[in-house]
Simulated assay, not measured.
Amino acid sequence: MKPTLLVLAAGMGSRYGGLKQLDALGPNGESIIDYSVYDAIQAGFSKVVFVIRHSFADQFKERFDPKLDGKIEVEYVYQELDKLPQGYTVPEGREKPWGTGHAMLMAKEAIQGPFAIINADDFYGREAYQTVIQFLENSTKDTEYAMVGYALHNTLSKYGTVSRGVCETDAINNLENIVERTKIGYLNNKVVYYEGDKTTELTGKEPVSMNFWAFKNTFFSALEEGFQAFLEEKGHEMKSEFYFNALVDTMIKAGRATTKVLSSDAQWFGVTYQEDKPIVQKSLQTLIDKGIYPTHLWK
């Protein structure tokens, strides 16, 4: 069974000031999602599942249904606060979504085989999709997952520091730990991270997680179990979130799963703020000028 691409697109873009999932960034109005799905099709994915919200479903479908018709199977699932297991309710006053693990769980019925998961507003590069496809085609263990590890220097900004999860692996590239570094940037042309007044130099080649993961269908059972445990412990809180990558970390440390870190030299970029938009537009145009993408992506 060919893999499915799961796209997390339910965010409301509060910092961006609008639905950045739909913002026109390519020369003919393409969004980052357009390039992600295009790369997934080229790599061999047979289906895409979008996690969205009912509030912008019509707008989203009008944007993607016509261009994807006949190219890849498409399905939509919805992340809403009240989509909880039987016996649980949304605490009064809570408005914040339940997190990426909850969003992922919404796709359980839509995905029957192996799958990869990405953020809607991140550009990952074609090589990454090809690497993930190769892993899913060759991996035989239900509890063996994978994560694309980007070279740190390919994910940095020239305009300030960023937060990155720096991956620690064993001798055969199995993930052992992800160390969250909240301030990484350039200092005198060197890559460093800041801790208070102290700076520590990095090579820039360290693998970092940008939320591109590959799973087997059996992971949904672990998600259900994990989300219910989360609700028991933190479901009464206003801002607590259930993250699928935190669940994977727990499973790794308990010996219940392994995760390969797949090396990628691709250039990552994404949009968080409006100020990111011209940088992304320029990056996409550079790739078009190199012949990696056609000017009219879907023509």
Rank of each mutant, 00 (worst) to 15 (best):
Y124L: 05
Y124M: 05
G125M: 01
R126T: 14
R126Q: 15
R126F: 08
E127P: 08
A128G: 12
Y129G: 06
T131I: 13
T131G: 05
V132P: 02
V132Y: 05
I133R: 01
I133V: 14
I133L: 11
I133Q: 14
Q134E: 14
Q134P: 04
Q134A: 14
Q134G: 13
F135N: 01
F135I: 00
E137F: 08
S139M: 04
T140S: 08
T140F: 04
K141N: 14
E144C: 07
A146Y: 00
A146P: 01
M147G: 10
M147H: 02
M147W: 01
V148T: 13
V148N: 02
V148M: 09
V148R: 08
G149I: 04
G149P: 08
G149A: 13
Y150A: 06
Y150P: 00
Y150D: 00
A151I: 13
L152A: 15
H153R: 14
H153E: 14
H153L: 09
N154C: 05
T155N: 01
T155V: 12
T155M: 11
S157R: 12
S157P: 03
K158E: 08
K158N: 10
G160Y: 06
V162S: 09
S163Y: 07
V166D: 14
T169K: 01
A171G: 04
A171S: 03
A171Y: 00
I172Y: 00
N173F: 14
N174Y: 07
L175R: 04
L175Y: 05
E176N: 05
E176M: 02
I178A: 07
I178K: 11
V179L: 08
V179D: 10
V179I: 11
E180C: 10
E180D: 10
R181E: 03
R181S: 02
K183G: 06
G185T: 11
G185C: 12
Y186P: 07
L187Q: 13
N188H: 15
N188E: 15
N188T: 11
N188D: 15
N189W: 04
V192Q: 13
V192E: 15
V192T: 09
Y193R: 05
Y194P: 03
E195D: 15
E195R: 15
G196S: 00
D197H: 04
D197W: 00
D197R: 01
K198V: 12
T199Y: 05
T199S: 10
T199W: 03
T200N: 09
T200M: 10
E201V: 09
L202Y: 05
L202P: 06
L202T: 08
T203E: 13
T203D: 10
T203R: 10
K205Y: 06
K205M: 07
E206P: 06
E206W: 06
E206A: 08
P207W: 04
P207G: 07
V208N: 11
S209R: 06
M210T: 11
M210Y: 02
M210S: 12
F212G: 08
F212S: 12
W213H: 14
F215L: 06
F215Q: 01
F215K: 01
K216G: 14
N217D: 06
N217Q: 12
T218S: 14
F219K: 03
F220M: 06
S221K: 09
A222G: 03
L223A: 15
G226W: 01
F227T: 08
F227N: 09
F227A: 07
Q228L: 07
Q228E: 10
A229T: 11
